[in-house]
Design a protein around this nucleic acid. Structure first.
Length: 584
RNA sequence: GGGUACGUAGCUCAGGGGAUAGAGCAACCGCCUUCUAAGCGGUCGGCCGUAGGUUCAAAUCCUACCGUACCCGCCA
């Protein structure tokens, strides 16, 4: 189904050509939804921008465009306003017919992309043996939502968890274990690592204090890379333990991910360096093998290197990232690779992408996108760090959110003298609590820093998940009360007349444009904004219009508005990774 | 020092060339014999960091400055 916006764009484009000739065929008609209902529903601003080129006044251009517009069935007569805006008011009959189409469609009238393209979304990516922190939570929630949107749009999405399961920290951990729990290195299940974070911290302290231990740790890395049996055994043990802890979080959040950690690419690292060497991109600098970059300079204005092999012979994350690009292009056949990581890595990715292009690891045809997000700040506005001591247990955070939601629900049940089963309460609290955390994150523009506040994210008022969930519950309540099967409604005779009905219908019909926007800009907060506004508009409609008590054909028309609203919310929320409740 | 973001209502944030800059929270005032009031309506609240520039049109683009944060060779 073609959206209203696209239909109007096409119509104005055609009118431009009809009025002024083919050379305007590629001119953007500058059609957009209006920001104020008094200017109608949509506006075309192209007349203003063409004034100079056509040597005519904007209003004269607008008049000529309108004279060539063929949109009688869609819009009331377009009006010229202000300096030369063309305002369109969509006819209620046209809104009704589109709404009927949406109602009859499984996908709410949203088309899938053709041809199907393969997209890799690389997100979450916690580090083995470290606490998953709020930054990982952001990557996980945002990455999942982006993956869900792209999946819905019809892309073949591979969700990759590029876990930090390799690197120098393992030398430190294994060396420490060798000292403290030597039996863990050889015996299966000899050690319940339990609190990995404590182990990590102790090892880190040891590492920072003792230069000799540092050497031992570095040797341990080499042994691990060489495949020493006891080292590998311990490494696997650490990974297993971490994996279980991560999985508990993913289960709670309902996140699906394919784990493919850094270690996966180990066999390919040497080849990457050799390839760079073959292409004469490599230079040795202070013992390290580097590719010098264009556009990156250090303090003294000298070009910065991307180090692909350290002076000790070890590879680092840049090498792994290059190998990963290579594998994803050649083996996974990705058309697009999306990296959801914090904004602090922007330089790193820009450098890696530059080298990958230069070395032909990354062909022109494959798009790589770094999707950055801001820092997670505490309520004091300062960065939350894990390494500096205070750890942030994500499991506790999520559990607290659920507990708080449960308390709120129980209070409300008591006030309303309702009784519900334990199962109902548990489920509602779970959905509300987890959704609140996700929504709080997603509803903000991801590029800005995120102020993490228990109070704000657990609050059940305002622009929050519970508000949207409640807006979904309301139409479901209507269908229960009236014994209505929404799927059986006939869309033959939809009549829209009341202000709040028209406003709601117009908003419902913008879903397809919003999803398109999120698909392109990868900004889930746009979808949140849309759903929030939809909830407000539905609540206004619900407040002002009787549904079940209305006379036909209004009754069915309003039931359809309720149904489409509910399905739009359900779909939209699902793209944010948020489930709905039938009652709450 | 260089690079990159950001600076919008008391607070948290949308909007990123188009008309009179929006929302939520907080504060205050109304609305439940009604499909769940986790709702709706209203009031209050702004030199869009500062100064220039580009444009028919700037919160939005450019430049400078001020402020904040992040990144800047062998961690990821």
């Amino acid at each position: 189904m073609k959206s209203l916006l696209l239909t109007l764009q096409a119509a104005v484009s055609e009118a431009l050509v009809a009025a002024f000739g083919d050379e305007l065929a590629d001119t953007d008609p500058l059609v957009a939804a209006t920001n104020n209902p008094k200017f109608g529903d949509y506006q075309a601003n192209v007349a203003l921008s063409l004034s100079k080129k056509l040597k005519m006044s904007p209003r004269a251009i607008a008049e000529k465009i309108i004279a060539h517009l063929q949109i009688d069935s869609i819009s009331e007569t377009p009006q010229i306003a202000g300096p030369g805006f063309i305002n369109f008011t969509i006819k209620p009959s046209y809104l009704a017919s589109l709404l009927g189409e949406v109602q009859q469609s499984d996908r709410l009238g949203i088309e899938q992309v053709e041809p199907i393209k393969k997209v890799i979304v690389d997100f979450s990516s916690p580090n083995i043996a470290k606490e998953m922190h709020v930054g990982h939570l952001r990557s996980t929630i945002i990455g999942d939502s982006i993956a869900r949107v792209l999946e819905f749009c019809g892309y073949d999405v591979l969700r990759l968890n590029h876990v930090g399961d390799w690197g120098t920290q393992f030398g430190m951990l294994i060396a420490y274990l060798r000292e403290v729990y030597p039996e863990a290195l050889t015996t299966a299940d000899a050690l319940d690592i339990g609190d990995l974070v404590t182990l990590y911290k102790k090892a880190k302290v040891r590492f920072d204090e003792d230069a000799e231990f540092q050497d031992t740790a570095r040797n341990e890395v080499v042994k691990l890379q060489e495949g020493a049996t006891d080292s590998r055994h311990t490494w696997k043990l650490l990974c297993e333990q971490s994996r279980r802890e991560f999985q508990a979080i993913y289960d709670l959040l309902d996140i699906e991910l394919t784990e493919r950690g850094e270690s996966f690419y180990n066999p390919f690292l040497e080849n990457i360096v050799r390839e760079l060497d073959k292409q004469e991109l490599l230079e040795k600098d202070a013992g390290a093998k580097c590719v010098f970059l264009e556009g990156f300079t250090n303090k003294d204005g000298e070009p910065l290197p991307l180090i692909v092999q350290k002076s000790d012979g070890g590879f680092n994350y840049a090498t792994t990232d290059l190998a990963a690009i290579n594998y994803r292009v050649k083996e996974d056949h990705a058309n697009k690779i999306i990296y959801v990581t914090d904004a602090g890595q922007a330089n790193h990715f820009a450098a890696v992408f530059q080298v990958a292009k230069k070395a032909n690891i990354l062909p022109e045809s494959v798009k790589v996108v770094h999707v950055p997000f801001g820092l997670v700040l505490g309520e004091d506005g300062k960065r939350i760090k894990t390494r500096s001591g205070e750890t942030f247990k994500l499991k506790d955070l999520l559990d607290d959110a659920v507990k708080q939601a449960r308390k709120d629900l129980e209070n409300r049940l008591e006030e309303e003298k309702r009784t519900e089963t334990e199962e109902f309460i548990q489920n509602a609290a779970q959905v509300v609590g987890i959704s609140a955390v996700k929504y709080a994150d997603l509803s903000q523009n991801r590029t800005s820093d995120y102020k993490f506040s228990y109070d704000k994210m657990l609050s059940l008022k305002g622009n929050t998940a519970p508000y949207l969930l409640y807006a979904y519950v309301r139409p479901q309540g209507v269908s229960r009360k009236g014994n209505i099967d929404y799927s059986q409604l006939s869309s033959e005779n939809i009549v829209l007349a009341e202000e709040s009905e028209l406003t709601l219908a117009k908003h419902l019909l913008q879903l397809t444009d919003v999803i398109k926007e999120v698909e392109q800009d990868l900004l889930p907060n746009r979808l949140c904004q849309y759903l929030f506004e939809l909830s407000q508009k539905f609540n206004q409609f619900y407040d002002r219009c009787d549904i079940l008590k209305a006379e036909e054909p209004q009754r069915t028309s309003r039931l359809i508005l309720s149904d489409v609203t509910a399905r739009t919310l359900k779909l939209g929320l699902s793209l944010l990774g948020i489930p709905v409740l039938e009652r709450m």
